[in-house]
Simulated assay, not measured.
Amino acid sequence: MNRTPPIDVLRKLRSEVGFGCPIDNCANPYLEWHHFDPPWHTENHHNPEGMIALCTHHHKVADGGAFTNDQLTAFKNNKVQAEKVKGQFDWLRNDLLAVVGGIFYYNILKVLQIDGHDVVWFKRDEEGYLRLNVKMLSILPRERALIEDNIWKNIGSPKDVRSPPQGKELQIDYENGDHLLVKFLVVETATLGYKKYNNEAFFDDRIKYPITVVEVNYVVGGTGIEFKSSGTTINQIRLGDGFIFDGPTGMSIKLNLVCRQNPSLLPYSPKSRVSPCPCGSGLIFKQCHGLLV
Results as ranks from 00 to 15, higher is better:
H289S: 05
N256G: 06
H46D: 14
F203Q: 08
S272T: 04
N69G: 09
G231S: 12
Y197D: 11
I23P: 01
F75E: 08
T223Q: 10
V134R: 06
G193R: 14
L283W: 11
F245P: 06
D90S: 14
N262L: 01
S269I: 12
G116Q: 10
I207C: 11
D125R: 01
F19R: 04
K135W: 03
K254W: 05
D204F: 08
K228I: 04
C259A: 13
G102Q: 13
Q88A: 15
R144V: 02
G101S: 08
T212P: 11
N176I: 02
T223M: 08
N77D: 15
D178V: 05
I52D: 03
M51F: 06
G128N: 11
K110G: 09
V120E: 08
H289G: 03
D246T: 06
T189D: 09
L283T: 05
W40D: 03
S252P: 01
S264V: 05
T212R: 09
F243K: 08
I103C: 11
T191L: 15
K12D: 14
L112S: 03
V17H: 08
N25W: 07
E127M: 12
T68H: 01
P6M: 00
P39Y: 07
E83I: 09
C279Q: 01
E175R: 08
F285I: 03
Y268M: 04
F67G: 00
G65I: 05
G222S: 14
E175D: 12
A74H: 11
S252G: 09
D246R: 12
L140K: 00
V161A: 05
W152D: 00
V100Q: 09
G290T: 03
G156Q: 02
V213A: 07
F104Q: 06
N78S: 10
K86R: 15
E32D: 15
I23A: 03
P276W: 02
N217T: 14
D70I: 12
I284K: 15
T73Y: 04
